[in-house]
Design a protein around this nucleic acid. Sequence first.
DNA 1: AATTTAATGTGTTGTAAATACATATTTGTA
DNA 2: TACAAATATGTATTTACAACACATTAAATT
Lengths: 234, 234
Amino acid sequence: MEKLRRLKTAESEKISHLDYFNIAISVDCVIFGYDKNELKVLLIKSDLEEFAGAYSLLGDLIRTDEDLDTASYRVLKERTGLDDVYLEQVHAFGALDRHPSGRVITIAYYSLVDISNHKLQLDTNELHWHPVHTIRKLAFDHKLILDTCMNRLQTQIMERPVIFNLLPEKFSLRELQKLYEEILGTELDRRNFRKKIAVKDWLQDLDEMESNLSHRPGKLYALKKEFRHKSVNA
Amino acid sequence: MEKLRRLKTAESEKISHLDYFNIAISVDCVIFGYDKNELKVLLIKSDLEEFAGAYSLLGDLIRTDEDLDTASYRVLKERTGLDDVYLEQVHAFGALDRHPSGRVITIAYYSLVDISNHKLQLDTNELHWHPVHTIRKLAFDHKLILDTCMNRLQTQIMERPVIFNLLPEKFSLRELQKLYEEILGTELDRRNFRKKIAVKDWLQDLDEMESNLSHRPGKLYALKKEFRHKSVNA
DNA sequence: AATTTAATGTGTTGTAAATACATATTTGTA
DNA sequence: TACAAATATGTATTTACAACACATTAAATT
């Protein structure tokens, strides 16, 4: 507030014109989860009459005392109770008509959470996990935002060890491969996939096996500690 | 304005709280040019006393009636007179203390212009081209923004035909290679470089030769028409 | 006119990475 | 104990990348 007062009184004529503060700014989070071999995204029923019945991403206006990453962490925390998740800024969306209630520019983030680990209070606040592939339309420009984040996710998982944020701590190579296939939308050769993963040297062999399966169990792996949670926000 | 009135009167209590409009939002453009075998960036002397003597990127607050891309095109047009340039959104920066005059969130763009083609009125408005490699510090967080855009540029030139926006319409392979080397900061093998470019199939052989050189002239090429100016702004 | 200079314009070969593909092994279950 | 279902792994082939050398052209110089 102190800063803003300085800005409005003492500063250049451009900045002080109140018109420029008539743009609101928000963050929207594309929260990906993985469950039952499906990539899912966390959506909420839109509360705007313009979009009655439609779902939207989780977002909120940015407060004057928090930076962009903090705002998206807050949204995530408030909505899901999670605070140890992967978050990455993707793109700013600012089309004039993107919000029916006025001019709102939004900064989109995607985040990755391990569904199995967490029980969200889903029903209480109309939050639901939706299979990404079944989503045809969303409120606002949120389908565009979802698609943009999905593209980003696809390129990121090939380059950096982010995908593990969707999995439980211990997982088999089969589970990992299934997840890659689900995100990329392709089938992968098991032998070549394992070679590729081996080369990256991301995984630690836990000397444990899967259990409670009706077939031969696979070894369990975990992401090496040094790779955990390294967000790149510029 | 009409929209905003609706927003402030009829809409949800969150959005209508005036506090949320106390954040200003701007665009900043990292305008790259290429001249005399050097990659340059267009800077302006900062007009804030906090940064007396320091240079800053070109930017402006976003108007309520223009979207993000439009705002950055406008900045470019107003400052340089150019309107046929390559522009790409890179990242949003929103640290609390990034602007000494108040809370300003900025969306950073990079753009590529062909210096030789254009005579800017540089001196009149304190605009100058600075060799990118010599820049140590800038006003605000603009050095961070510059570095972020530079990284993006480096990855983009390998993947998509954007680099040609820095060159005149006709160019030799030697000129192209020099530019790649300047941006990537490495030396490239001429034979391998030409093979790589040939595979991408971006270029049209013009059946013309360089002239006015004191050595053997090379063939001239142009970017194929179908690749010209395809910005990807999500 | 011959020579020098400085660049252009290819081609080959070796190495590393990506792909395609098949068989033996382990566990739980009928 | 035979079967179903998945694990675990190796090799041959193709493709991409890197390293490298020589003949050619035009202009400037002698």
